[in-house]
Design a protein around this nucleic acid. Structure first.
Lengths: 335, 335
DNA sequence: TTGAAAGCGGTACCAG
DNA sequence: CTGGTACCGCTTTCAA
């Protein structure tokens, strides 16, 4: 059986309270006693029981994460941001992925509440209306990343999805493109997919370019989808000269498809992605894409959440971080 | 305050034991009583307290993960495998990354023991000797993935790193290459980096190709490292015609560098990677690489570990999964 | 089928 | 600076 503070106390000839003190407030214990206890803990291979501690302290120093999927590197990056920030403040994280599946979100929230996480970091707004309701009825701090939260009582740290997409269109136009397609994520899967589309639409409108639904395709975020969608666009009677992809993964597939169709990206076809994954710089041609502050969003989100948990702040943070259009070589200048 | 089983019990006019039973063994409770309790739990927004439960049951249904870094997609994939398998059996996971930093591993293990995870999944063997010692003194099941464990008491699920690397060299040779370089991960960071190098050395030896340390470079696993290393190889007075990269990330960098040096991969220079990340198929040229069973390793590892935890087996699993050399277009045939 | 009560391993308040 | 002792919320015999 594992040794407990009672064992240590007995062995040291002190009370459990004293042992507990050397764990939590060592300076409150006389040095001699403390050292003796420390030594015995060492000898006995004592390991603190965080379950018991958490039960009495009513705190677990654990954050629950909800992300779509860990295999998209952009979420890996923001997860890392969260993890780094959390670790620096003595928190650990439980990882949960929805895989864009309905119902998973609520399951994860339930699980986290049972495990008594101190707070939850959402990627995007809760999708399921029952989640919001559930969250509201139980007291548990949470923060939304990647999107503006739906309620102004809910803190968020995001970037401007609409504006970023708008800038993409703007750039295409400045390069002489007028026939601009879009391969988008599914609107019902993430709110931000829709936002990016809105930015795209706004951009077109601003330059009086007619919107054509035939060259806007909604697909799940995957290389295969990007490939398929691009194939379809290229077979259009009036194919686009430029394509905005809702994320870099889609763009990778689009690039592959374009090559299969013997199109020369950066020469007679323009492609822009979103996320700026590490690999995008080594694509051929190097992919022009929107760099988003994935890591910062994660770390700032985690820090803000922990501030709330620890009562270090009462204000509802609303951070909007900057994005950058990283110009590389995947967009040709049309005459 | 959150409602507890005591509240529910009082409201339902039963004892806490009965409430506990409807949670854990519903069939033991008379239907009428059960339904009443269920209804009240619903009304009161009751949420089970897993801390308290875990404390008495001495089980948390949680697995601790130790991976190098979540931003390498191959670890994301195996993490997903672990997560899927774990979730299917009612377990959740705590994620910990070492970022290849010394000391982190032991910290994570300590943390996991405090949190009373039911088991730990290691990526590779524990690097720190103190970790092994620590693990030995406390009772906690764990499993090693990605490598053969060092003790035959420790279960593992892996693939043959040596053989996979050997096959890479074999293929290079079959394509007419005799001057084969390697960009490897650091031996002191992971045991498998060394194993792959061993396979490489064996392969050379088998074909009587002299080993030349000038064209073997150890670097951290990153795109930048791959780029830099390839640059160095290409500047060698007698540069290699083929380069084996310890993983796909390094290969991406190597590809980029080769292009900067105006070399034509797949025509006058061969590159092979390791991992077969999703992006590798859309590289230009599509990257020939070793496909490893990342997802399966994760899921099989998790399942085997849970079997141990639940006492469903007493044997120490030792799985060695298959790898495949995926032939694409990054290796030219030399005359 | 149900209840009483002794844990599980800590924390924290009140005394001294 | 230290001890005594009620909790924290749930599980699990043992009896009834």
């Amino acid at each position: 059986m594992a040794t407990t503070i009672s064992d240590i106390a007995r062995l040291a000839g002190v009370s459990r309270a004293t042992v507990s003190r050397v764990i939590n407030n060592p300076e409150q214990v006389k040095e001699k006693t403390r050292n003796k206890i420390l030594r015995i803990m060492e000898e006995q291979n004592y390991v603190y029981n965080a379950l018991a501690g958490g039960l009495s302290k009513n705190s677990t120093r654990t954050l629950g994460l909800i992300i779509p999927t860990i295999t998209n590197p952009i979420f890996a990056v923001s997860t890392k941001g969260i993890q780094n920030a959390a670790a620096a403040r003595g928190y650990s994280i439980i990882l949960g992925s929805t895989e864009y599946a309905e119902g998973m979100e609520l399951n994860l929230v339930r699980l986290y509440l049972e495990k008594r996480v101190d707070g939850i970091v959402f990627t995007g707004n809760p999708q399921d209306p029952r989640t919001a309701e559930y969250l509201a009825s139980r007291q548990i701090p949470y923060i939304v990343t990647w999107e503006v939260s739906q309620s102004d009582r809910v803190p968020f740290v995001t970037f401007n999805n609409i504006k970023a997409a708008y800038q993409v269109v703007d750039y295409f136009i400045s390069m002489g493109h007028r026939r601009i397609g879009m391969i988008s994520g599914r609107f019902y899967e993430t709110g931000r997919a829709k936002k990016r589309w809105e930015g795209y639409v706004e951009g077109l409108k601003n330059w009086d370019v007619p919107y054509d639904e035939n060259i806007v395709i909604q697909k799940e975020y995957s290389v295969a989808s990007g490939r398929e969608a691009m194939g379809r666009l290229l077979r259009d009677p009036n194919p686009p000269t430029a394509v905005f992809c809702g994320n870099d993964i889609l763009a990778y597939g689009a690039i592959a498809a374009a090559k299969e169709h013997k199109r020369s990206i950066g020469t007679d076809l323009g492609i822009i992605g979103f996320d700026d994954l590490e690999m995008s710089a080594v694509m051929d041609p190097p992919l022009t894409t929107v760099r988003i502050p994935g890591h910062e969003m994660g770390s700032m989100g985690a820090n803000a959440l922990i501030d709330i948990i620890e009562g270090k702040t009462t204000e509802t943070v609303q951070y909007v971080l900057e994005t950058d259009l990283i110009l590389r070589s995947s967009v040709p200048k049309l005459k």
